[in-house]
Computed example of a mutant assay.
Amino acid sequence: MAKRWAWVGIGVLLVGVLTACSSKDTADKPVPSTKATTTPKPTATASRAWYQDYDPAHFATDVRRYAKQAGVNPQLLMAILYAESYKPHDPKFERQWAEVDSNPAFGIANMHKPAFDETKRGRDFAKRRWEELPDNPALAIEAAAWHLHDLARRLPAKRADLYTKDELLALGYNAGGGNMRIFARGRTAGTQAQSYLGKIHKYWTQSAGALKS
């Protein structure tokens, strides 16, 4: 999930990472998939890799599909993808960054391994691996949708009116289910969580438009 990277000086650090990882050929190879996934919607730059012209709107079909399956608001799911688009989603870059990040997040929804492993239990993608997320946007969207579904089930029956349900789910996606429940009871989110919620609001209208494409 959204963990703001310290981008200042990232070029210098990444040069060292690329050098250290240059001999690890297998780290750059996509993990074989055991299940067919949805093909991203073709764009005007179809000759380029999807992550070289990344826009969450290109995956509107997957967002609508998996949001419906999980029973969550597709506009919220799309807004989360926009909020998480601040970093490059080149699979090679993600794996190399994981070499120096003690708690990396993978895929276009920036999901951490514990969240993915918990979410996949009993689901159609139960046999899939977190390590597949950088190469598989559809799997990342599916996992994010069901994670939101699970967060919704953890909301208390009686909630304060400080935040809407979708706002609470966005806060839970960013700050965790435990903090989400605290916010649901009326406590104001901290600076980082509130900043994330601000991004959701920023992309809300744009997300609605993307889903119509």
Rank of each mutant, 00 (worst) to 15 (best):
K165M: 15
A67V: 06
P88G: 00
L76F: 10
D53T: 13
R159G: 00
T164S: 15
P91I: 13
A140H: 01
L171A: 13
A152T: 04
A109P: 09
A115N: 10
P104K: 15
D135H: 03
D90A: 05
G122K: 08
L133F: 03
N103I: 11
Y86C: 05
A109I: 05
L162Y: 04
T119L: 09
E167Q: 12
D101Y: 08
D55Q: 15
L77D: 11
N136E: 14
D161G: 07
P56K: 10
D135F: 07
P56W: 09
A138Y: 03
T164D: 14
H147L: 07
R64E: 01
R65Q: 10
P74T: 10
R65N: 09
S102F: 11
V100W: 04
A60I: 13
K92N: 03
A145Q: 00
A143R: 06
A105D: 12
A140S: 13
D62L: 00
V100Y: 02
P156R: 14
L133S: 07
H149N: 13
D101F: 02
A70I: 02
R159T: 13
L151P: 06
D55W: 15
N73E: 02
A126G: 10
L76M: 11
D135P: 07
E99Q: 03
A126W: 13
Y54C: 05
V100R: 11
A79C: 11
L155D: 09
A67R: 04
A67G: 09
D53E: 12
A98G: 15
K87F: 14
D101I: 03
P137F: 06
A83L: 03
D117V: 09
K158S: 09
L139T: 04
H149M: 02
E94P: 09
P91Q: 02
L81C: 08
D62M: 12
A67Q: 01
A170W: 12
R154E: 15
V63N: 00
M111P: 05
L171N: 11
R95D: 02
I141Q: 00
K158W: 00
K158G: 02
P156Q: 14
R128P: 06
I141R: 04
I80H: 03
A109D: 08
A57I: 06
R128I: 05
W50D: 11
A144V: 00
Y51H: 15
P74Q: 11
T119I: 10
R129L: 13
P56F: 04
W50T: 13
E142G: 01
F125H: 04
K127H: 08
L76C: 05
A170H: 13
T61W: 09
L133E: 09
A79Q: 06
P88T: 01
I80L: 10
A115P: 00
K87V: 12
R129H: 12
E99A: 10
A138I: 05
H58V: 07
E118Y: 15
P91R: 03
L162C: 08
R128E: 11
A160W: 06
D135V: 06
D117Q: 10
G122M: 12
H147T: 08
R129Y: 10
M78N: 04
E99F: 04
G172E: 08
Y86G: 11
L139D: 07
L169V: 05
D135S: 02
R153F: 13
I80G: 01
Y54F: 15
G172Q: 01
D150T: 01
G71Y: 14
D166E: 14
K120E: 03
